[in-house]
């Protein structure tokens, strides 16, 4: 990232999102420097997904979100598409088109650069040579070499999540929003996806990732905690004491930080990626 470096600064100022009477985000302010990486934690329903959706204007907000010098919620449609093209998203439920070949799903990372003609060409005949090369390289990076023409729905969940990462690699976004990317994948895939995301971050992309696994979140230099729509912690993980964690997670017994109560049996002590909580895969809150 060179000249566009400053364009990737994200600033969220006094943002609130209401669904009817329910305030999903309540006066949230957050500044993310270009190239920074931070983890967002919080109970189910705290507003993590809503925050990510607000950044790409998938929901309306009050307050202001700036990406570089552009105010997201006042952009024209065309400008918004440009911004979205430089924001990469990855979700817990893959969100690929199941009927398309895996390689086409990955190639769609470049969708914002396709004119009408190239769009049609890609639709009918697949990505052109240059894009196909990029896609193949990306698929190889995530360990799916030679799988580009496989039908996406035939891939396993973990493989699909890696296709989603390949799409990011094709897109080369300046900002990555990863919403519980490990909620439905195995530990090996988690590490793999994690590495790929860190590598993109090293190349200059800012990385915002929402996590249910506090131990994993502590591997980030900055942790932001949401509770009932408000930021209740923003800082380095060292200062994230047990009391603070208990406060963040109180009222949601399911989601207590893992490894903190060794006396408690059951899946909560599982210290790997949290595959026990697939909540939200069915409901509105999965975004």
């Amino acid at each position: 990232m060179t000249s566009s470096q400053r364009d990737n600064a994200l600033e969220i100022r006094g943002v609130s999102v209401a669904f009817g009477k329910n305030l999903a985000l309540d006066d949230v302010s957050l500044a993310v420097e270009p190239g920074e990486r931070l983890a967002v934690i919080g109970t189910s329903g705290a507003g993590k997904s809503t925050l990510f959706r607000a950044i790409t204007r998938d929901v309306g907000v009050s307050g202001e979100i700036r990406f570089g010098d552009r105010r997201i919620h006042t952009l024209s449609k065309r400008e918004l598409r440009e911004v979205r093209g430089s924001v990469g998203k990855i979700h817990q439920a893959y969100n690929l088109v199941p009927q398309l070949p895996a390689g086409v799903n990955a190639a769609l990372g470049d969708v914002v650069n396709m004119g009408k003609l190239r769009t049609l060409h890609t639709f009918l005949a697949g990505p052109n040579t240059a894009l196909a090369k990029t896609v193949e390289a990306a698929m190889e990076r995530v360990g799916l070499a030679g799988m580009s023409s496989a039908k996406t729905s035939n891939l396993s969940g973990g493989q699909q999540q890696r296709v989603a990462v390949a799409r990011l690699l094709v897109q080369r976004p300046g900002l990555i929003l990863a919403d519980e990317p490990f909620a439905a994948v195995d530990p090996v895939t988690t590490e793999r996806v994690f590495d790929a995301l860190l590598e993109l971050n090293k190349d200059g992309a800012s990385l915002l990732i929402s996590l249910h696994d506090v131990e994993l979140a502590k591997r980030f230099p900055r942790v932001v905690a949401l509770k009932e729509g408000s930021v209740v912690y923003d800082g380095s993980p060292e200062h994230l004491t047990n009391e603070k964690l208990n406060d963040i997670y109180d009222g949601d017994m399911e989601a207590r930080p893992k490894g903190k109560e060794p006396e408690e049996p059951g899946p909560d002590n599982f210290s790997g990626p949290d595959i026990t909580r697939l909540k939200g895969q069915d409901g509105i809150s999965a975004h």
């Binding site: 998938d58 979205r84 088109v97 009927q99 914002v112 009408k116 769009t119 049609l120």
Partner: peptide, 27 residues
């Protein structure tokens, strides 16, 4: 969800239709 994911990657209406809705409705 897949259609929204496409739109939030910067796809316009035509592209979302072509790559998101059409393949899912084809059969």
């Amino acid at each position: 969800r897949p259609v929204e994911a496409l739109a939030s990657t910067g796809a316009d209406g035509f592209q979302s239709f072509l790559f998101g809705m059409l393949p899912q409705g084809m059969s």
